[in-house]
């Protein structure tokens, strides 16, 4: 894997104020993504994966540690610069699609280009290309309400790619879809990845996570590689060391009798 490192996180810590004390959500997170990778971050709710996603997506900043995305030091940036990074380098795909209901599919896809100050004609052309790519070339004037869930997510994916960002950041992209449609969306992600897109996907569903080339586990604010994780936890997420051994079970039984 000789591709260059696109995203690099070192010792990221994050805590939120909780009453008078604070709640630490991320502990010394180290994370690296190379170009053309398809990584999924897998973890149950409350594991800190949303916080991690917010930091990766430059929606939030870490308390300590360094974060370099596409050669830019994110940690030192201000709101205005973060907005620019979100616009240029990141394409978001959300669980609830997050399309603006009053706008057509085309307008929705164009939106990031408006903030990138791309001229109208070029904007329309680029948005059309991407809507065709996700298979919605005939539905560009439809409003979100007139589209199915799967189609809405396709519009959202087209929007995520329209600025040609360095990474596509998908947060539970199949969470609001049925099995079949979800699988189709995952097919689309796989295809995009084959074409050279870097994709980071956050999910709680191991089945969906397995569609990615690499899985990173997050649990209680700590990140584990697949190997580290399986050394500590079984498939059901129970720690090996917490599992009762046959011997202890026997001892307990005899003691109780």
């Amino acid at each position: 894997m000789a591709e260059k490192v696109l995203l690099s996180m070192r010792d990221i810590n994050k805590s939120y104020p909780l009453g008078e004390s604070s709640l630490q959500v991320l502990f010394n997170v180290n994370f690296e993504v190379r170009q053309k990778e398809f990584v999924s971050i897998l973890g149950p709710s409350g594991s800190g994966k949303s916080t991690l996603m917010n930091i990766i997506g430059c929606l939030d900043t870490a308390d300590s540690g360094s974060y370099v995305l596409n050669g830019k030091d994110i940690g030192s940036m201000r709101d205005r610069q973060l907005a620019k990074v979100r616009n240029n380098d990141i394409g978001f795909v959300f669980q609830q699609f997050q399309l603006l209901p009053r706008m057509t599919a085309l307008d929705n896809v164009e939106l990031p280009l408006i903030y990138a100050r791309v001229p109208t004609r070029e904007r329309k052309a680029r948005a059309m290309v991407l809507l065709n790519k996700v298979g919605l070339g005939d539905k560009v004037m439809n409003k979100p309400k007139q589209l199915s869930g799967g189609q809405q997510q396709r519009v959202a994916i087209a929007r995520a790619m329209v600025t040609d960002p360095s990474i596509i950041l998908a947060d539970e992209p199949t969470g609001a879809l049925d099995q079949t449609t979800g699988a189709q969306i995952m097919d689309l992600f796989e295809q995009l990845n084959k074409e050279g897109k870097t994709i980071i996907m956050i999910t709680h569903d191991p089945k969906i996570a397995r569609r990615a080339k690499r899985i990173v586990h997050i649990l209680d604010g700590r990140l584990y590689t697949a190997e580290e994780y399986s050394a500590i936890y079984d498939e059901e997420g129970v720690k090996w060391e917490d599992k009762p051994t046959i011997r202890s079970r026997r001892m307990r039984r005899s003691g109780n009798v």
Binding site: R80, R86, Y115, A116
Partner: peptide, 12 residues
Amino acid sequence: GLRKALGAKPAV
């Protein structure tokens, strides 16, 4: 929120 996520600066 969405507009901001897509890159709208606070001033915009």
